[in-house]
């Protein structure tokens, strides 16, 4: 979808006006008996939120028309909260493509996920594609209560077919019970030092992660495991974190082989 001349929904006085969209989508899931209901489901700007068919006690949300945003200058945000005992599943309908837009200024795309005690959240968006000449700062911040469970899968593709990537910086922050569990940043693309060298990505252009946080992993921590014998078709490693969590990190030449590796490491139904 195109986002022509949408006025800033809540202009911040301290930020100089740049062209672009300001939009925050909000999702709140609560437990109601045997089911999860969604008292808050508010789309905004490029985000169009749809209730999908529930899956047992799990409520499902699909973020539609996502999006020919983010474009340079956009300030996009998704806030999702799973309250006590709620079971929430969020996907997007299509890949998110960062494009240059009317300005070279960066866009921001911030996702905040909050999980209360005994809540469960699946965050399974389609890939984020960093198109040539785009400039995006993406972040995902997750706060989990001690008994909460998370399944997150994120895939990033640097450049559309036959082009180089734009500038992309990402940040993943996971706190559990108020303590840091996982903190990762990355900067890719033109001007980012060393990103395509042999210590970081080499010539892989598709990067994926699966993060599982589950208190039961405390009692049966997984062993580290390597996947993908041939670097040409991708490599992945499953690592136990310093907490009840595991992280799968995969690198591949393209999304297809990336997903194959991620599925082999941890199939997500």
């Amino acid at each position: 979808m195109t986002l022509a001349a949408v006025p800033p929904s809540s202009p911040l006085p301290t930020v100089p006006t740049v062209p672009g969209v300001r939009a925050t989508a909000r999702i709140r899931a609560i437990r109601a008996g045997d089911t999860t209901v969604l008292p808050t489901l508010v789309g905004d700007g490029p985000f169009d939120l749809r209730r999908a068919r529930p899956h047992g006690s799990q409520a499902r949300v699909c973020i539609l028309a996502a999006m020919s945003a983010p474009l340079g200058g956009d300030r996009l945000r998704i806030d999702a909260t799973a309250k006590h005992g709620a079971d929430l599943h969020i996907t997007t309908a299509a890949a998110t493509i960062a494009l240059r837009g009317p300005t070279t200024a960066h866009a921001t795309y911030d996702v905040h996920l909050r999980l209360a005690e005994h809540a469960r959240l699946h965050w399974l968006p389609h890939p984020l594609i960093s198109a040539a000449r785009s400039n995006l700062r993406q972040s995902c911040t997750i706060d989990l209560a001690a008994t909460a469970r998370l399944v997150l899968r994120e895939e990033t593709v640097l450049g559309r077919a036959g082009e180089g990537p734009g500038r992309l910086s990402t940040r993943l922050t996971v706190r559990r019970d108020g303590r840091p569990l996982l903190e990762q940043q990355a900067t890719f693309g033109p001007g980012a030092p060393g990103w395509d060298g042999p210590a970081v990505l080499a010539d892989h252009r598709a990067i994926g992660q699966i993060l599982i946080v589950d208190p039961t992993l405390e009692h049966r921590p997984p062993h580290a495991r390597l996947l993908g014998d041939d670097p040409a078709t991708g490599q992945a490693v499953l690592t136990p974190l310093a907490g009840p969590a595991l992280l799968i990190t995969a690198l591949a030449p393209d999304t297809l082989r990336l997903r194959r590796l991620l599925d082999a490491a941890h199939p997500i139904g």
Binding site: H223, A224, R225, L226, P240, A242
Partner: peptide
């Protein structure tokens, strides 16, 4: 393949 190194 399982990797055996203690982390604790």
């Amino acid at each position: 393949m399982h990797l055996h190194h203690s982390d604790t």
